[in-house]
């Protein structure tokens, strides 16, 4: 029973996902659409699982004062801070949305012919409330932390790649044999031909770069993608038929 039920569920979901792609039938669409929503909800829970796992691993290190426990503590503190700030942001956004909606209704009432003076006053009061709510939503801890801490940190980490790529290219692109030489030549052509200075140095560089990307690259990419696709089909069928059962392990 413990084996058969998961295999049946997997086969059921898999078959309907395949059927949905090939047939436009109301009852197939109905079931597969519902399964998709279940899939999204399940995958959303994976985020929660990830958070719990992160907490479990890092809390243990902090409690036992293992190596780098300070960094782990900072990681956990940052995570909880951003979660709290995110919740607050959501609250502010919802409040701003509601105030804006009320404001629009009040404006509509105030702009109606023969609108009472009180309605016009209400509209004016709501206008200032709307601006205040929007301001609170825009300038809160989440936005501040995102744009002033996370944003520059993430951009810095990614930018460091340029330095490491330069260093790696210097060491790796060595004409040691025929294959390495071909790789070196292709790399130089693409690196120079992809940037405007390539055409400035020699008009043939952009053309050569384009040729390399359109023909040899496309052929190689297509071969890899088709191979992977056939492998995925085979793997999918094995999972649907219950031959492969990775979900039953662990």
């Amino acid at each position: 029973m413990r084996t058969r039920v998961p295999i049946f569920i997997t086969a059921f979901v898999g078959v309907f996902m395949i059927l949905k792609f090939f047939f436009v039938t109301p009852w197939i669409s109905l079931i597969s659409n519902e399964l998709e929503q279940w899939g999204i909800v399940t995958l959303a829970f994976a985020i929660i699982l990830g958070v719990l796992n992160l907490m479990k691993i890092n809390l243990k290190t902090v409690m036992e004062r293992k190596r780098d426990w300070g960094y782990k503590l900072l990681l956990l503190a940052s995570m909880f801070f951003m979660m709290g700030a995110g919740g607050l942001q959501w609250y502010h956004d919802v409040m701003a949305g509601r105030t804006a909606e009320a404001c629009e209704k009040a404006f509509a009432a105030a702009s109606a012919p023969n609108a009472p003076a009180a309605a016009q006053q209400d509209a004016a009061a709501l206008k200032s409330q709307k601006d205040a709510a929007r301001l609170a939503a825009d300038k809160n801890a989440f936005s501040f932390s995102f744009y002033n801490i996370y944003y520059p940190l993430a951009a810095t980490i990614y930018s460091l790649l340029a330095f490491y790529v330069a260093s790696a290219a210097f060491r790796a692109f060595r004409a040691k044999n025929l294959h390495a030489t071909l790789l070196l030549i292709a790399a130089i052509i693409v690196m120079i031909g992809r940037v405007p200075i390539g055409g400035y140095i020699w008009k043939g560089f952009p053309w050569l770069q384009d040729w390399l990307m359109i023909w040899p690259n496309t052929a190689g990419q297509r071969a890899i993608q088709m191979g992977a696709a056939i492998g995925m089909i085979a793997m999918g069928l094995r999972v649907i038929f219950g031959i492969e059962r990775p979900y039953l392990k662990g």
Binding site: A175, V195, I197
Partner: peptide, 24 residues
């Protein structure tokens, strides 16, 4: 950004070429 990218690409290519010449 193309100015910077062009210059850095030329630098990398020069370094790679010089590295290969030195090795040869």
């Amino acid at each position: 950004g193309m100015n910077v990218q062009s210059a850095v690409h030329v630098l990398i290519v020069l370094m790679v070429l010089l590295g290969n010449i030195a090795q040869y």
